[in-house]
């Protein structure tokens, strides 16, 4: 059973961080939908509601998303629906249901770095920075490779540029976790391909991305890049699919998402 012995609602980030690091089992509370299933025994639960971190706004060429913005906010926000082919909105729209997405926060979703995360895969092909209270700003891809450290994710900063992007997730049933999710983006002939729910955490298919960026986007080259992505990434087996199936899916879906990006380009 999920238990919280004490509760704190700090007014300042500084205070929140202080409480967080005071004891090992002090924990930041996101929406709690996942936390509740963890059966964790939390010392002091830290609620960030008073810090006004639930914004999504444009700021000096960046889209800035506060940690307490809900997934549903990402889905419906006009700014995000327009930017990058709307992939952030799309990436979250099939997660359980509207009510769930109204409760789950962006901060918790990113900070937890779940392997199954659809959002991380989409964020990874954009120019996304994570801003931590203590750790400062860093690219999302660096954040994902860092070991878990106690910190507070304050906001995400995404460079607002002309990047075209596409996202898709492959699910056994519509409201299930993904068997695999794929995001592809293109800016100034540079391509980025990310694959998540392998079932491990989302990663960028570096070699495939490079190969695609260097070629002429012929059907053969696209096919080849998709194959490189499937070959260079590692896949695992869980109840949703075997490693071999994920690898095969990866090739098909990467190809399709590249085509999808090219489609939006021509439009």
């Amino acid at each position: 059973m999920f238990t919280v012995l004490d509760m704190a609602q700090p007014d300042k980030l500084e205070e929140a961080f202080e409480i967080l690091t005071k004891r090992k089992n002090n924990t930041i509370l996101g929406g709690c939908a996942f936390l509740k299933m963890s059966k964790k025994r939390i010392g002091t639960g830290i609620d960030l509601s008073r810090l006004n971190l639930d914004y999504i706004r444009e700021d000096n060429g960046f889209i800035v998303i506060g940690a307490m913005a809900a997934l549903r906010d990402l889905e419906t926000n006009a700014l995000l629906r327009d930017a990058f082919g709307g992939i952030l909105s799309q990436s979250v729209r099939n997660i359980i249901g509207v009510q769930f997405r109204n409760g789950v926060t962006v901060g918790a979703s990113v900070y937890s770095r779940y392997g199954f995360s659809d959002l991380l895969t989409a964020l990874l092909v954009l120019d996304t920075e994570v801003e931590l209270y203590n750790g400062g700003k860093m690219p999302l891809r660096d954040f994902l490779q860092k070991p878990y450290e106690k910190d507070i994710l304050v906001q995400l900063r995404i460079e607002k540029n002309q990047r075209l992007a596409a996202f898709s997730s492959f699910r056994k049933s519509a409201s299930d976790f993904a068997v695999l999710n794929i995001a592809v983006s293109n800016l100034d002939k540079q391509w980025t391909i990310a694959v998540g729910a392998r079932p491990g955490r989302a990663v960028i298919a570096e070699t495939a991305s490079r190969a695609l960026s260097q070629g002429h986007l012929s059907a053969e080259e696209i096919e080849a890049a998709a194959k490189i992505a499937a070959d260079e990434l590692s896949f695992g087996t869980n109840t949703r699919g075997t490693a071999g199936y994920r690898k095969a899916l990866c090739q098909v879906l990467v190809k399709r998402e590249i085509m999808e990006v090219l489609q939006c380009k021509s439009n």
Binding site: S173, A174, T239
Partner: peptide, 14 residues
Amino acid sequence: TNTFMQYKIPCRQD
């Protein structure tokens, strides 16, 4: 398969 997360009954999109 002991939760609705792991045991998927059809949802209305399925």
